[in-house]
Design a protein around this nucleic acid. Structure first.
Lengths: 178, 178
DNA sequence: GGCACATCCATGCAAACGCATCGACATCGG
DNA sequence: CCGATGTCGATGCGTTTGCATGGATGTGCC
C-alpha cells in the first residue's frame, strides 16, 4: 500500500528522482513484507481469547514501567485512533485484562494497568506468537541479516522524531535557529 | 504490535531461545517502524478524495498488466478480508475509479480494471505520496541503507512462499518427499 | 456424463473503527 | 485569582470491517 511511483515527473533533477525512487522502493518492500507477515500471524491460531490488536495493547503494557501507562501514551504506540483505543480498553477492562485507575499526578489522565490475569494472558499468547515469529523469520534470514534488519528499522523509526511534518508551521519551528 | 517476548521460557535450549529472541526483536523493529511511518503518511494531507487504503488498491492495480486484476488476486496484496475488499471495490466503482468486468477465462471471477479517471487519481496522489516517502525516509537512511533495507524485506517476504503454515496438514505437504 | 468437492465473489449482520464533539482538568498570562 | 487556551479521555453517530454464509462456476474422479 501507499506506494507511489508512476513515471518519474519530467523536468525534475535526475539525482532527486533517483533518490525518491529508492526511498519509494524501500518503503514498498518494508510495507509488503509487513503485510505478508501480518497475514501469516493472523492465520495462526494463537490469539484465541482476544484479537491480535488487543494482544498488542497487552504486550505494550507489559513493557511499561509497573505495567501501566497513560491512555495517551499507549496511543502513541498503537495504530488506532484515540476513541478506538479508549473503547478497546473498555473491552479489555470488562474482560478483566486491564484496569483503569485515575492518575494522581494529572487528574485529566487515566492510567491503564495490566492485571495479573492480563499479564498471564499476554505471556501465554506471547510464547506461542514468539514461536510463530521464529518460524516465519528464521528460515528467511540468518542471524546477521536479522540484526541488520532490526538495526535499519530502529534507525528509520527513531529518525522520525527529528523530521518535521510536511505541513509544519515554519513560524514555530525553531530547531534551525538555535 | 504482535511482539512476543516475556521472559525466556525455562528449559529451552539456549541457542533456540536466543534465535527466537533475535527474530522477535527484528519483527518488533519492522512492525514499529511501519507503524511510525503509516502514522506520518496518514497525517499527510495528500489523499484527499479517497482513503489511504483505497489508494493502495488503485496503486496495486496500476502495476498490474493492462491495469486489471482478478478480485482474488488483488486480495493477496491488500491487507483486507475478501468481503471488505469486495465492498471497497463497490465504493471505488461508484466513484468511477475502477470498473468491474466479467472474466472471459473463468466465469466465477470478476476483473477489476482501473479506469482512466482512476489512473489519473492514482498518479496525482502517487506523486505527492512519493514526495512524503522521500521526506521521511531520505533523512533517516542513506542510499546504501535504503537498498539494504529493501533487499532484506524482499528476501523476507519472498521466503514466505516456501515456509508452510504452523498448522499445515502434514499429509498434504510433499515438499520434503520429492 | 454426473456427482462430490473446491474456488470465487456477493450479501446479511454484528462488531469495531474514525471523525466530530464535549466535559473535565491543566497551564499560562494578566 | 480569573479567564483564555491547550490537553486528555469519553461518547454520539455514520462508515467500514470481519465472520458466516449462499449462489454460481470450475475441477477431479468414477
Amino acid at each position: 500500500m501507499t506506494m507511489p511511483t508512476s513515471p518519474p515527473p519530467p523536468g525534475e533533477p535526475a539525482v532527486k528522482v533517483s533518490s525518491t525512487r529508492l526511498a519509494a522502493e524501500s518503503w514498498e518492500a518494508l510495507f509488503r513484507a509487513q503485510v505478508a507477515l501480518i497475514r501469516r500471524f493472523a492465520d495462526d491460531d494463537v490469539w484465541d481469547p482476544i484479537s491480535m490488536r488487543e494482544y498488542d495493547v497487552l504486550f505494550t503494557l507489559s513493557r511499561c514501567p509497573d505495567r501501566r501507562a497513560r491512555l495517551h501514551e499507549l496511543n502513541r504506540e498503537i495504530l488506532l485512533s484515540q476513541p478506538s483505543l479508549s473503547r478497546m480498553v473498555d473491552r479489555l477492562e470488562s474482560a478483566g485484562f486491564v484496569a483503569r485507575e485515575p492518575d494522581p499526578a494529572d487528574r485529566r489522565g487515566t492510567l491503564v494497568r495490566l492485571t495479573e490475569e492480563g499479564s498471564q494472558m499476554q505471556r501465554r499468547i506471547g510464547r506461542r506468537h514468539a514461536a510463530s515469529i521464529r518460524r516465519y523469520l528464521g528460515p528467511a534470514l540468518d542471524d546477521d541479516e536479522l540484526r541488520m534488519l532490526a538495526h535499519l528499522c530502529d534507525k528509520l523509526r527513531l529518525a522520525q522524531a527529528r523530521i518535521p511534518d510536511s505541513h509544519a508551521d515554519p513560524g514555530t519551528d525553531h530547531s534551525a535557529l538555535m
